[in-house]
Amino acid sequence: MPDTVSIDWYVALSIILFTIGAMGVLLRRNAIVVFMSVEMMLNSANLAFVAFSRYLGDLDGQVLTFFVITVAAAEVAVGLALIVTIFRTKQSINIDDINTMKG
């Protein structure tokens, strides 16, 4: 066993977490859980950024992560407000109840 892990392993972990997040988005009904899955996907991307930052010796990866976290915070705030509003009108946060775009 080598004494240090290669970048490949971080990328692999990032992909696995991303896929699990995507599965959450695709398969779960609960709007809040869907949202959490999105956060997970963002996190997996962040992990990749930081790993590459270390790998390449460049600080930009961390700066980008910083921005992603900021935007994610804003997104969560608005998203949760939307969910609250939808819950008020529909008395439900099941995303299947929101299908006004049905053709």
Binding site: A22, V25, L26, L27, I95, D96, I98, N99, T100, M101, K102, G103
Partner: peptide
């Protein structure tokens, strides 16, 4: 035919994106 793809379910659209 194409109309049927527009289910109105957000997850189906997300699936498409995925």
């Amino acid at each position: 035919v194409v109309r049927k793809t527009q289910t109105g379910y957000a997850r189906n659209y997300a699936l498409g994106v995925f």
